[in-house]
């Protein structure tokens, strides 16, 4: 790679394709960077709480660097397109919520129909491609306030991720994080063995 990749490209590379949900996540991530005056995360300076597991979360991971692996992406299964981006250095947190109807309209509706349908005909594939273009331009050009509302909130920062010891499971012999192992009559066993065979 010759140059630093722009946020849009980072997100598309990470997610694998372009879709309206990803674009909404890109808008959120770029807005948070600007509004909070922050840089993408290196080592848990940022924490993001996402209230959805939809496409937009991949933009958060790719652009903000708040990732599942680093432990600074906290997922709450609320089914809401709401993202709280917090900076430890700045001591600030921004709650950004997608406006109801912010990504609606006949094109979005039709795009969803085609996205959910398998085996598109050539005409449908072309139609989906055209809709992607229309929605892309609209979502990336729309004023942020037309799509989202946001406010600063008080935020209790979680502790940074800890590294725990790995012990050997008395059942399968595989390694398991010590705090996840369960003390049973057979000794310390991993959640997999506990689930499959109980404590016996």
């Amino acid at each position: 790679m010759c140059k630093n990749m722009p946020p849009l490209e980072l997100a598309i590379q990470f997610h694998g394709h372009i879709c309206p949900g990803l674009l909404m996540g890109i808008r959120v991530a770029e807005f948070a960077l600007k509004e909070l005056g922050i840089s993408p995360d290196v080592d848990e300076e940022l924490v993001t709480v996402v209230e959805t597991n939809s496409c937009g979360v991949d933009a958060i991971q790719a652009i903000l660097g708040c990732t599942f692996g680093k432990g600074n992406l906290i997922y709450k299964d609320y089914g809401k397109n709401v993202y709280t981006v917090a900076s430890r250095d700045k001591g600030r947190a921004l709650r950004i919520a997608q406006k109801f109807g912010g990504n609606r309209g006949p094109e979005s509706q039709r795009f969803r129909e085609l996205a959910q349908k398998g085996n598109l005909t050539a005409d449908e594939a072309a139609e989906k491609e055209n809709l992607t273009g229309i929605l892309f331009e609209r979502l990336m050009s729309a004023p942020f306030e037309d799509l989202f509302e946001w406010r600063e909130i008080d935020f209790v920062f979680p502790e940074k991720a800890k590294i725990h010891a790995t012990i050997q499971c008395a059942g399968c012999g595989e390694g398991v994080m010590d705090i996840r192992a369960v003390d049973t009559a057979r000794g310390l066993i991993c959640p997999t063995c506990l689930e499959e065979k109980g404590g016996q």
Binding site: I12, I18, A122, A125, A126, K128, E129, N130, T132, G133, F136, E137, M140, S141
Partner: peptide, 26 residues
């Protein structure tokens, strides 16, 4: 990468011979 058999975009030049397009594809 277009799936379209036809050109997907059509632009018209302005008085200075200019036309713009928003690049939405890889």
């Amino acid at each position: 990468g277009t799936h379209n058999r036809e050109y997907p975009h059509h632009l018209k030049t302005d008085e200075e011979g200019r036309a713009k397009i928003f690049l939405t594809a890889r």
